[in-house]
């Protein structure tokens, strides 16, 4: 049965009906009780997934919703991470260091957004690529940021009802991720989000209905960088150690793969993409252990797919998955999700 809407607000509320609310509550409850049932190793994976979700939300806003491109998002993550660590070392409480990470990153985002007003497509891609490389190169040359050797991240002083440190970090990261998802969902449903999508679909028409193109493109870059910076801050916190090589060009590409795999312009897509690809990246290394196929893949990647001579089976497989997505399901995992939903709604017809 279809539920009929009776007020316009029903289009704005977070949960469309009781069933939706129930399952969301179950999921959140499960995530919050998880630390009591699993080993710390799995929490680390969940942390990494959560951080990737936040970056993906931001990048998808820029790429999927505004129609711009960025090959330098690892740079924003780095800026967020280093801002946090620097402030923590100066004795600033984490909450302020976290906010500062987002703000500083957003300012850099706006700065990078300025060339986007003149550049399009591949030219913008090159500019953002250069930005990402410049950030890590510059950090590597700054001694007060630890240079190429990196820095230790000070541990937080958390004393919450005898909670273990790892558990506390997990709760902080999980809570912030949930807030980020809700915030992004609301922004995208609002006049601001609609303006971004208008620019993507037709910038002429967007201007003709009164959208200030310059301002909104910069908003999009700023917001996108804010999410990346916040994610960087959390990443530094649970890694415990950061250095410039963490924020390589490959990481930026990885973020792009997440949103393409998940589904461009969709929040569900950002979440699915980040969770699935993070898991795959960790598991694909094990492909080598499969008899025959594993060895063949290893040989293939060693001979044809590497610049350094070290086999990178997981990257080859990621690339293969990406090609499949683009060919068969351009909306990515979100598209798959939609199809499944429609299938069950219409079942058994």
């Amino acid at each position: 049965m279809r539920n009929l809407k009776t007020t316009y607000f029903e289009d704005l509320q977070l949960f469309k009906d009781g069933v939706h609310l129930f399952w969301s509550a179950v999921l959140i409850l499960a995530l919050f009780t998880l630390p009591f049932f699993v080993k710390t190793y799995y929490l680390t994976i969940l942390n990494l997934m959560a951080v990737n979700v936040i970056v993906a939300l931001g990048l998808n806003l820029l790429v999927g919703n505004t129609g711009q491109i960025s090959l330098g998002h690892a740079g924003f993550v780095a800026i967020g991470a280093y801002t946090t660590v620097l402030l923590l070392k100066l004795g600033v409480p984490f909450i302020f260091a976290f906010v500062a990470a987002g703000v500083v990153s957003a300012l850099f985002g706006i700065l990078l957004g300025i060339p986007s007003l003149k550049l399009e497509g591949p030219y913008l891609a090159i500019a953002t690529l250069a930005f990402g490389l410049a950030v890590t190169t510059l950090i590597g040359r700054m001694d007060f940021l630890g240079g190429r050797m990196g820095m230790n991240v000070p541990k937080l002083q958390i004393k919450w009802m005898g909670l273990k440190y790892d558990h506390a970090l997990y709760y902080i990261i999980l809570s912030i991720t949930i807030i980020a998802v809700i915030a992004m969902r609301n922004i995208l449903r609002s006049r601001i989000g609609r303006a971004f999508q208008a620019i993507r679909d037709s910038d002429i028409a967007a201007a003709a209905i009164g959208i200030h193109l310059t301002r909104y493109k910069l908003y999009s870059f700023g917001l996108s960088a804010l999410f990346a910076g916040a994610a960087g801050s959390l990443w530094a916190l649970y890694l415990g150690f950061i250095n410039p090589t963490l924020f390589s060009f490959i990481l930026s590409i990885n973020f792009l793969v997440i949103i393409v795999l998940g589904g461009l312009g969709s929040i569900t897509g950002s979440i699915l993409g980040a969770v699935v690809l993070t898991y795959l990246n960790l598991q694909l290394e094990n492909v080598v252990d499969i008899p025959l196929l594993g060895a063949a893949l290893y040989k293939f990647s060693e001979v044809f797919m590497t610049t350094t001579g070290i086999a990178n089976v997981s990257w080859v497989l990621t690339g293969f998955i990406l090609i499949l997505v683009v060919l068969y399901e351009p909306l990515g995992l979100y598209g798959l999700w939609l199809r499944t939903k429609i299938f069950w709604k219409r079942w058994p017809f």
Partner: peptide, 25 residues
């Protein structure tokens, strides 16, 4: 036609209200 093709009719017309709305990010 310069419509916002990947959006619904409702969102397209709501975009016409953009300049009259004031909510900040």
């Amino acid at each position: 036609l310069e419509l916002f093709a990947h959006m619904t009719t409702l969102d397209n017309i709501l975009l016409g209200r953009h300049k009259s709305m004031k909510a900040s990010i």
